[in-house]
């Protein structure tokens, strides 16, 4: 088969036909998603997270958050993230890429890895109060999160104890060091059945 014959053979291969309905509805579906994201006011987190952030340049907008946000009490970010629905939806949407969901004063943000390399450990829920600022984070053992003015690694041991470790910084429920007086932390592992999602084919 010479190059000309090959090109002709290739060009005769067709792509799947789709019904007319598909083409007329596709723009509406995209616009619907774009509108939802815009109404939710979700935008990329304004800060970066150390070495892990090199893999996490993409900050996704969250599909469907507007619906959840409408049902959640404004100050109850901890509860709405703890119930696992947001986590399940985002894990399904971004299989293996979701590093953290962050709720703070400016809205809900997601932190995504560029590749599907986030291990499927139990989710960890953190509430970090730094003076008047409050941030609720769902993340996983081994991920970096912002705590006060520094990046810290979130770790969880086999017994379910959560620790935050950073440069000159340590926090667990029992002990802490290097923590400013105005910073208060609450942490817990989310039960498996709440946070776990069924795997789905990645994009």
């Amino acid at each position: 088969m010479n190059p000309r014959e090959l090109d002709k053979y290739l060009r005769e291969a067709r792509v799947p036909e789709r019904p007319d309905d598909y083409w007329s509805e596709f723009p509406s579906r995209v616009v619907g998603r774009a509108r939802t994201e815009r109404v939710a006011g979700i935008r990329p987190a304004p800060w970066r997270l150390g070495a892990a952030a090199a893999l996490a340049a993409a900050f996704g907008l969250v599909l469907g958050f507007a619906l959840w946000h409408r049902h959640a009490a404004p100050g109850d970010a901890y509860g709405s993230l703890r119930d696992g629905r947001v986590l399940r939806e985002l894990q399904t949407r971004y299989p293996g890429r979701l590093q953290a969901i962050i709720q703070d004063g400016s809205g809900l943000h997601t932190q995504l890895s560029d590749s599907a390399d986030v291990s499927a450990s139990d989710p960890i829920l953190l509430e970090i109060r730094d003076g008047k600022d409050r941030r609720v984070v769902v993340t996983f053992s081994g991920q970096l999160v912002r705590c006060g003015d520094r990046n810290v690694m979130v770790l969880s041991d086999l017994g379910g104890q959560v620790m935050l470790v950073g440069d000159g910084f340590f926090w667990s429920r029992q002990a802490s060091s290097g923590l400013a007086d105005v910073v208060h932390i609450r942490a817990e592992r989310i039960p498996n059945e709440l946070g776990r999602s069924k795997p789905s084919p990645p994009l």
Partner: peptide
Amino acid sequence: WEAFAGLIRMHQR
């Protein structure tokens, strides 16, 4: 939004 849908229609295939 309708304008953006128009752009999608132009290039979706």
